[in-house]
Design a protein around this nucleic acid. Structure first.
Length: 615
DNA sequence: TGCCCTTGCGCG
DNA sequence: AAAGCGCGCAAGGGCA
């Protein structure tokens, strides 16, 4: 066994790395008695798109640590693997790891489910440092809060990776290899017992332990809030482990159709213009062939953030209104085809790339991923932005056999949240009476319902007269007047907005979670966004609350398929649909500061009656 | 070629 | 007086 005596944060620590075939399980288990809290870290081969589900993924090391001793276990040794599994599966043990990677690896590659016995330091760090951790990562945070030894060990390992890479690629000569390639090569090939690897691996597991302890007080959160967030992170891991079943036939049909159509269109555009279909220069090219962009807004076209004509969604169809020359018309036709299929190409590509051998996509759900508001976010692929336009885009996801997908949406939750937080009695009365809030606003500002609706959303997003004027296509002074009227109509919300704008240090959501106040990239103030952060984030808290009740009071945790901000999509056994529909509606229906929050459940089925994901 | 930034667009 | 929010992702494009 290799034993390294070193220091972390100035304190002596020991790292023990048993040799394959020479492992003493008795000494190991004596170090980690049942009922403990242990730091956990794992090292593996480099990640691909399929991550732990890649057939070539190998779990290489598992490190388990007390606060001063780490064992670095070599997974090529079956005895060390068994020992790791024994400690991980012991239901009396709790673990602290740096993110979800170790939890997923343990589940997929050691058949050890610690999803409900793990504390995640990344979630704690995100709660403690609400400013996106001010650009820090867990390694630099460890240096700051504990000591420099882990980062030093990481640097030493990286130096070794460069040596390995250079030795394997002599043709490189003095040219510097791309860091990404070096890293990948290093993680794949470094010897399991190399001192730099073992030292770094062991220190990280010990550091997890210490980091959690330092971070908890820095979150400024109650024990309840921290436990809720740790629970939520665990549920997110369970969702990722379960994954989302893909209807491969539908995926391939959609991919083939979209790739053919978009590919032909792109080729035609390139042929006729010399430009790529997504080139920003294409706007100018159309201008030279008959498009009159100055008229775009008056034609009903939207602008992008930078003031260019937007060609998103229905906007593209407006191109047809231009009198174009012959080649312009041909390019336009190809461009419309390209736009109609572009999103389907991107999404089918994403699903294909992430489709695991088990026929599922195991997207990552970050429970505190939205740094600004802590809304949950989804990656690899992002399941929260699949288009609703073509039913096959969402429809390529299907429930497991014998199950249906069921969606339950909050009803206008953000407006209700702001009404409740502000104590806006006019609005609350309307909600209690079941009146339409957009009509209410329209009446109170003496404008059409459509303007009332826009004004309602604008205030939630912190917008003003300029935004209303551009969205509603009304004169600026009229829009300013409408905004003033809206504020006069809802004085309590206007007053809440004033209070939020006055905040300089932090915002507290309904759960007591801290948020950063609105800031511009250059550090300037964006105080007007504060009310939006409060609303968005509080709505997120309410969804998590409802989810927690669904999981605990009804024991339905494993039915949650995906949260989408104001909606929970469930995967429910066919025979329980009626019952679970009632349960989820009950969980998502409650009183919030005197305001009823409600939700509506619906089974998702396609036109043929087959349950698949949809709107 | 790699790296970084910007832009546009899907969802809520 | 003035201020539309939050994400993830792919592609374009400038630069070394």
């Amino acid at each position: 066994m290799q034993i390294f005596a070193t220091v972390l944060g100035g304190q002596p620590v020991q790292i023990k790395a048993p040799r394959a075939g020479a492992f003493d399980p008795v000494a190991f288990h004596a170090t980690f008695p049942s009922g403990g809290v242990y730091g956990l870290d794992t090292e593996s081969t480099a990640f691909t798109k399929l991550a732990q589900w890649d057939p070539d993924f190998r779990l290489r090391l598992v490190q388990i640590a007390t606060k001063d001793t780490a064992y670095v276990l070599d997974m090529t040794d079956v005895h060390q693997q068994t020992a790791a599994r024994n400690v991980l599966t012991d239901q009396a043990n709790t673990f602290i790891s740096h993110n979800n990677v170790d939890v997923l690896s343990a589940a997929v590659h050691l058949d050890a489910d610690i999803t409900r016995r793990n504390w995640d330091t990344l979630v704690l760090a995100s709660m403690a440092f609400t400013d996106r951790m001010a650009g820090r990562d867990l390694k630099t945070l460890t240096t700051e809060l504990i000591g420099p030894e882990l980062e030093a060990a990481e640097a030493a390992l990286e130096a070794h990776f460069y040596e390995l890479y250079a030795a394997a690629h002599p043709e490189l000569g003095k040219r510097k290899a791309a860091k990404d390639k070096v890293q990948r090569y290093g993680w794949d090939t470094v010897a399991s017992d190399h001192p730099a690897y073992v030292l770094y691996a062991g220190l990280d597991a010990i550091a997890a332990h210490h980091l959690a302890e330092k971070l908890v007080p820095l979150t400024g959160a109650t024990a309840t809030l921290i436990e809720t967030e740790m629970w939520l992170a665990g549920e997110a891991n369970r969702i990722q482990l379960r994954g989302s079943l893909v209807d491969k036939a539908m995926l391939e049909e959609l991919a083939a159709e979209a790739n053919t159509a978009a590919g032909d269109a792109e080729a035609a555009i390139l042929d006729l213009t010399g430009l790529k279909a997504r080139s920003p220069k294409l706007i100018g090219w159309f201008g030279e062939h008959g498009a009159v962009w100055d008229a775009w807004e008056s034609m009903g076209g939207d602008l992008t953030d930078t003031g260019n004509p937007s060609l998103a969604k229905d906007n593209a169809k407006l191109l047809s209104l231009f009198e174009m020359d012959e080649v312009g018309a041909r390019v336009r036709e190809a461009y419309l085809t390209f736009k109609a299929h572009q999103d389907k190409v991107l999404k089918t590509n994403a699903v294909r790339e992430h489709l695991a051998p088990d026929g599922r996509v195991h997207s990552t759900l970050k429970t505190i991923g939205a740094a600004t508001t802590a809304r949950m976010s989804s990656t690899d692929p992002n399941m929260q932005n699949f288009s609703k336009e073509d039913p096959r885009t969402r429809g390529m996801f299907v429930p497991a056999p014998g199950h249906v997908l069921l969606s339950c949406d909050f009803d206008q939750v953000e407006l209700r949240v702001v009404a409740a937080l502000a104590g806006e009695q006019v609005m609350i009365n309307a909600i209690l009476a079941g009146d339409d809030l957009h009509t209410l606003s329209a009446e109170r500002i003496n404008r059409p319902r459509s303007i009332g609706k826009m004004a309602n959303f604008l205030i939630v997003y912190g917008g003003g007269g300029r935004a209303l004027a551009s969205q509603a296509r009304i004169p600026r002074d009229d829009a300013d007047a409408a905004v003033s009227a809206w504020r006069a109509a809802y004085p309590a919300i206007a007053s809440l907005n004033q209070r939020m704008m006055g905040l300089t240090s932090e915002i507290r959501t309904v759960s007591g979670r801290r948020l950063e106040v609105g800031k511009l990239k250059n550090g300037g103030s964006r105080a007007y966004a504060n009310i939006n952060y409060l609303i968005q984030s509080s709505a997120r808290d309410l969804l998590v609350d409802a989810w927690h009740r669904f999981a605990t009071a009804y024991g339905r945790a494993d039915m949650v398929w995906m949260p989408i901000h104001d909606e929970l999509v469930l995967e429910v056994p066919e025979e329980l649909v009626e019952q679970v529909s009632r349960e989820i509606e009950e969980c998502m229906t409650f009183d919030f500061l005197g305001v009823p929050i409600s939700a509506t459940a619906a089974v998702l089925r396609d036109e043929a009656g087959v349950s698949r994901w949809g709107k």
